[in-house]
Amino acid sequence: MAHTLLPSHYRRFLLNERTMDKPISPNTYRAETVPFDSKPGPGQALVKVNYLSLDPGMVIWIRESRFTYTPPVPLGSVARASGLGTVIQAGEGSTFKPGDLVSGILGITEYAVLDDALLTKHELIPGAKPLDFLGPLGATCGLTAYFGIFEVAQVKPGETLVVSGAAGAVGSLACQFGKKAGCKVVGIAGTDAKCDYLKNELGIDVALNYKSPTFHDDFDRDVGFWDAYFDNVGGDITDFLTTRMNRFARVALCENSSSYSGILKNIMEFVVRSGRIQGFIVFDYVDKFDAAIKQISGWLEDGSLKSKYHIVDGLERLPEAFSLLFSGGNTGKL
Rank of each mutant, 00 (worst) to 15 (best):
His3Thr: 05
His3Glu: 04
Thr4Cys: 10
Leu5Lys: 13
Leu5Tyr: 10
Leu6Val: 11
Ser8Cys: 12
His9Lys: 15
Arg11Leu: 10
Arg12Met: 09
Asn16His: 15
Glu17His: 15
Arg18Glu: 04
Thr19Asn: 11
Asp21Gly: 09
Pro23Gly: 00
Pro26Phe: 13
Pro26Glu: 05
Asn27Val: 11
Arg30Thr: 03
Arg30Glu: 04
Glu32Trp: 06
Val34Asp: 03
Phe36Cys: 09
Asp37Gln: 15
Lys39Cys: 08
Gly41Ser: 10
Pro42Val: 03
Gly43His: 14
Gly43Glu: 01
Ala45Leu: 04
Val49Gln: 02
Tyr51Glu: 02
Leu52Asp: 00
Leu52Trp: 02
Leu54Glu: 01
Asp55Phe: 13
Met58His: 10
Val59Arg: 12
Ile60Phe: 15
Ile62Cys: 07
Arg63Leu: 06
Arg63Pro: 02
Arg66Ile: 11
Pro71His: 08
Pro72Met: 09
Val73Trp: 02
Val73Gly: 00
Leu75Ile: 09
Gly76Thr: 01
Gly76Lys: 13
Arg80His: 11
Arg80Pro: 00
Ala81Gly: 07
Leu84Gly: 04
Gly85Asp: 02
Gln89Ile: 13
Ala90Pro: 08
Gly91Ser: 05
Glu92Phe: 15
Asp100Ala: 08
Leu101Gln: 11
Ile105Lys: 11
Leu106Val: 02
Glu110Ile: 08
Ala112Met: 09
Leu114Ala: 06
Ala117Tyr: 07
Leu119Phe: 08
Leu119Trp: 05
His122Cys: 07
Leu134Cys: 08
Gly135Ser: 08
Pro136Asn: 06
Gly138Asn: 07
Ala139Val: 14
Cys141Thr: 13
Thr144Arg: 04
Ala145Thr: 14
Gly148Trp: 03
Glu151Val: 05
Lys156Gln: 15
Pro157Gly: 11
Pro157His: 14
Glu159Cys: 10
Ser164Gly: 10
Ala167Asp: 06
Ala167Pro: 14
Ala167Leu: 10
Val170Gln: 01
Gln176Trp: 08
Phe177Arg: 02
Gly178Gln: 05
Gly178Ala: 09
Gly182Leu: 09
Lys184Cys: 05
Val186Asn: 01
Ile188Leu: 07
Ala189Tyr: 14
Gly190Leu: 01
Ala193Met: 11
Lys194Pro: 15
Cys195Lys: 03
Cys195Leu: 07
Leu198Gly: 03
Lys199Asp: 00
Glu201Lys: 10
Asp205Tyr: 07
Tyr210Met: 08
Ser212Gly: 12
Thr214Asn: 15
Asp217Cys: 10
Asp217Trp: 06
Asp218Phe: 06
Asp222Phe: 08
Gly224Pro: 03
Phe225Glu: 08
Ala228Arg: 11
Gly235Lys: 05
Leu241His: 12
Thr243Gln: 15
Arg244Asn: 07
Met245Val: 10
Phe248Gly: 10
Phe248Cys: 12
Arg250Ala: 06
Leu253Phe: 15
Ser257Cys: 14
Ser259Asp: 13
Lys265Asp: 06
Asn266Met: 06
Glu269His: 13
Glu269Ile: 08
Val272Trp: 12
Ile277Trp: 01
Phe280Tyr: 14
Ile281Ser: 07
Asp284Ala: 05
Asp284Cys: 07
Lys288Asn: 07
Ile293Gly: 01
Ile293Asp: 01
Ser297Cys: 08
Leu300Gly: 06
Glu301Asn: 14
Tyr309Thr: 02
Tyr309Pro: 07
Tyr309Trp: 12
Tyr309Gly: 05
Ile311Val: 15
Leu318Pro: 00
Leu318Arg: 02
Glu320Gln: 14
Ala321Tyr: 03
Ala321Pro: 02
Phe322Asp: 00
Phe322Leu: 12
Phe326Cys: 07
Gly332Ala: 04
Lys333Gly: 05
